[in-house]
Amino acid sequence: MTMTAVDGRSVDPLRPPAPPTGRRRVGPGVVLSVGFAAFLALACFAPGLIAPQDPAAVAPLDAFSPPSFSHWFGTDESGRDVYTRVVHGAGSSLVIGFAATAIGLVTALLLGVLAVFGGRIGDAIVGRAVEVLFAFPALLSALLVILVLGPGPVAATIAVGLSTAPGYARIIRTSLLTVRSSGYVEAARLLGHGPARILVRTILPNALSPLLALATLGVGQAVVWASSLSFLGLGAQPPAPEWGAMLASARVYLTTAWWLTVFPGLMIVATTLSATAIGRALDARGRRAR
């Protein structure tokens, strides 16, 4: 009895699709994506510049105004400006997305390195560990972490991160194997570099590049999972204008106030799309470089 599909032999299950062949120009999609990323960066680090109002300021008598010149994205059930909240929410939303992805990648990297450089025993241990992690689906492990840490964004982030780790780990293992048997490592060794230096300077950069595209997809995913936890009442704490929490609380008013769901939802989708486009462009560049 074997479980070939999970030992990474046959396939790279989460491997991103190959980029369109033969294209070297930077497409308009990528330009748009970079533009959006710049907007997000501004929203994260200086939200006051593009949205000077206070995201928590309530105006009960202005509740549920549809989008207008004074409120571009309308107002919510407490009369708060949705545009302001979306902009100010970028920081906390992306922190969840990036931190979860980082947790997933670091865990995966440790597992991958142990699998490839830990000998047969290391590989076997990692194989089982990955299987066990796979056996705990995202929301399930999120709920377990919440059981221990109590509800909140920290628990959500850790849980979402851990649950993405096994997928990354398999890909890392495969690419580490490829890189190890390639010419660079041999060359580096001939140059007299030590094993640690080879690992950090030569192997990891080459092995990580295919992961980039996937990890960018993961950022959006993490925000989406965190929003599901908010829907279940176990996510971000008010009045933090986190996108997932905004989406979850807007669900109640979906039929009466569409703008409450549409704008935070658009932000999540746009973030995922632009992150994916950028990730793929980087991946394609990395491949050409090799």
Binding site: G220, V224, S227, F231, R251, L254, T261, G265, T272, L273
Partner: peptide, 14 residues
């Protein structure tokens, strides 16, 4: 990509 970024609770409501 849009499909994979849709939260279940949102899709269900729609």
């Amino acid at each position: 990509i849009v499909a994979s970024a849709l939260p279940h609770f949102w899709l269900a409501t729609i």
